[in-house]
Simulated scan of single mutants.
Amino acid sequence: MEIKAECFKALGDDTRLKILMMLSDGEKCACDIQENFQLKQPTISHHMKILQQTGLVHVEKRGRWMFYGLNNELLQKLQQFIDTELINDNQLDYILADQDCDGTRNKQT
């Protein structure tokens, strides 16, 4: 569960989400990622390090360039977690209480 929490924390940043969206159509060189943002190289490196540490992206060094790509296997596992654990009819019974905190609403069926 801790790995999922770290991934969701990493996904909670707008810049990192945009980077993942860029990578959705294939691997990108670090310089290609940087040119799409108004950020300096150390800031992009920080975001890439977080994405890499969580396992959301993989990195490959080719010569002097770093290429980043999505870890589709992990992203599919996160999607499966959302689909089966968070959006599961059995879980909804647990989430929906019989009453509001003030005790006024009964569970609707």
Rank of each mutant, 00 (worst) to 15 (best):
M1I: 13
K4C: 10
A5D: 06
C7D: 07
C7V: 06
C7P: 05
K9F: 02
K9M: 08
L11K: 03
L11Y: 06
G12A: 04
D13C: 01
T15W: 00
R16E: 01
R16D: 01
I19G: 03
I19D: 00
M21E: 14
M22A: 12
M22H: 07
L23S: 11
L23V: 05
K28W: 02
C29T: 06
C29H: 13
C29A: 15
A30L: 08
D32P: 04
D32L: 11
K40C: 04
P42V: 10
P42Q: 08
I44T: 02
I44F: 00
S45V: 01
H46D: 11
I50Q: 01
I50C: 00
Q52W: 02
T54D: 02
L56Y: 04
L56T: 06
V59P: 02
R62F: 04
R62A: 07
R62K: 15
R62W: 07
G63P: 04
R64F: 05
R64I: 01
R64C: 02
W65K: 13
F67Y: 13
F67E: 09
G69W: 03
L70Q: 10
N71L: 03
N72R: 15
E73G: 04
L74N: 14
L75H: 09
K77V: 12
L78R: 01
Q79R: 14
E85R: 08
E85K: 10
E85L: 06
N88G: 07
D89V: 15
N90F: 09
L92S: 06
L92W: 07
D93L: 15
D93C: 11
L96S: 03
D98T: 13
D98M: 11
D98S: 05
Q99D: 10
C101R: 13
C101W: 13
G103W: 03
G103V: 08
T104D: 15
T104K: 15
R105N: 14
K107T: 07
Q108R: 12
